[in-house]
């Protein structure tokens, strides 16, 4: 059968062309599913600057001694770098001294940073953010912390991330129940 311009312009071939494109779109969507882990999920995380040596040293000194914060107080410009270090370094601040100090300086900003990490971070980053939230002033920001913890719990539960669910449950249990005066 000869396929020329008038044949291609016919309703039958135009219909076939449209069906072909729809099929191609379905194939593209299926390909995206196959590439989920190696392409899409790989890039879904919060991007942090690598922790500079002086920031790491400062974070460590603030996490181990209260004297460091008293002699050389943390400035607003340092908060983000210290937060980045906290999220990226496991077991940096097991006593919570640095986290407490960061919340004391600017609790609203710290809650906003935790919120962002919980929304766009990968599993490890979200776990760190939940750990950090444990040191948030529970009486002052109970509603905000509860909202973030519940969001993190629901998200993790749906994704079957058990360690995150446990961490969120622990955080929720520690929050004061009922309305604060």
């Amino acid at each position: 059968m000869k396929i020329d311009k008038p044949t291609l312009r016919s309703a039958k071939y135009q219909g076939l062309l449209i069906i072909g494109v729809l099929f191609g779109a379905a194939c593209l969507a299926v390909t995206a599913l196959f590439l989920r882990e190696i392409f899409f999920e790989k890039y879904v995380r919060e991007t942090f600057q690598p922790v500079a040596e002086h920031v790491a040293a400062r974070a460590k000194s603030l996490a181990t001694s209260r004297l460091a914060a008293e002699t050389n107080p943390v400035t607003n410009s340092e908060i983000d770098a210290l937060y980045d270090a906290w999220i990226q370094t496991d077991e940096l601040d097991s006593s919570g001294m640095l986290a407490n100090h960061l919340f004391e300086i600017n609790s609203e900003h710290m809650l906003a940073r935790c919120c962002r990490t919980l929304v766009i971070g990968n599993q490890q980053q979200r776990l760190q953010a939940l750990k950090l939230l444990e040191f948030a002033p529970a009486t002052e920001h109970a509603d905000q912390v509860r909202q973030l913890a519940e969001y993190a719990r629901e998200k993790s539960k749906r994704r079957a991330e058990d360690n995150l669910v446990t961490a969120a449950d622990g955080l929720l249990a520690r929050l004061p129940q009922g309305k604060t005066p």
């Binding site: 729809l22 779109a25 379905a26 593209l28 969507a29 299926v30 995206a32 599913l33």
Partner: peptide
């Protein structure tokens, strides 16, 4: 077609 497959 695409959101239904990708969203799954």
């Amino acid at each position: 077609i695409q959101p239904a497959i990708v969203g799954a």
